[in-house]
Design a protein around this nucleic acid. Structure first.
Lengths: 114, 114
DNA sequence: TTGATATATTATTGTCAACTTATATTTGGG
DNA sequence: CCCAAATATAAGTTGACAATAATATATCAA
């Protein structure tokens, strides 16, 4: 029974895969993943991230720049500081799944229920 | 209680992040993602994958070799063919999430409910 | 305006992952 | 045993990404 086989058209699947891979590439770096976890839990400015993640500032700003241009995060200036938060809800969903799978029996990155 | 802020200890979080990143790196490649999607949907041999994904055989075997050594997939020989399937259930969970998020209103890679 | 702090950008470099080409291994048929 | 098909492995090349170093921009305070 091949009828039940094709879940989605091949071209659409390729398009979806391209989108997914773009997101996955951004997550597939330890420091960047930790960074996203942190701002998913609480909006943070660069210097806070720098301290808690122990990443040099230019590297951090470079990574944040990529995430900003890709629409993954929001940047809001408040005085001298720039505060970052997650913008793309799909990223949050993936982060939640990763929490559920890899973090030893702890709650996910969202506050309330989901 | 401490603060309610720290969801997980920093070292444990780093360890979890390392694990997650290992998995994410394997997913963060379009051909490999499509490959995993296909064998998540139906156990396939190399030549089937080669045809449906349009990847050259050595590249394919190389990728499959990595996935095999990392315990992500199962390889079972049947005559001249080697059939691959997903071994790591965590990969399946991530794939399901990606389906849900990026595939336009279609069902996930698992048959039943979860 | 000047200085200090916070963040961003640019250029350079080093590392790693994936593709290609070529060759090796396994299996079944004759 | 020999051949062809299916799959795996190895060596060499290339390209992309991230870290570093240096510099630039923005904001506030004096």
């Amino acid at each position: 029974m091949k009828t039940r086989k094709a879940v989605i058209e091949p071209e659409a699947l390729r398009g979806a895969a391209t989108q997914a891979v773009n997101a996955l590439k951004l997550l597939a770096n330890r420091e960047r993943l930790l960074l996203l976890c942190q701002i998913a839990n609480s909006r943070s400015c660069v210097s806070e991230l720098e301290e808690s993640l122990d990443i040099h500032q230019p590297t951090l700003s470079q990574q944040l720049g990529v995430l900003r241009r890709d629409g993954i995060v929001n940047a809001e200036r408040d005085g001298k500081n720039v505060y970052y938060s997650i913008r793309d809800p799909r990223m949050l969903e993936i982060l939640e799944t990763l929490y559920r799978i890899y973090c030893p029996s702890k709650a996910p990155g969202k506050k309330g229920k989901h």
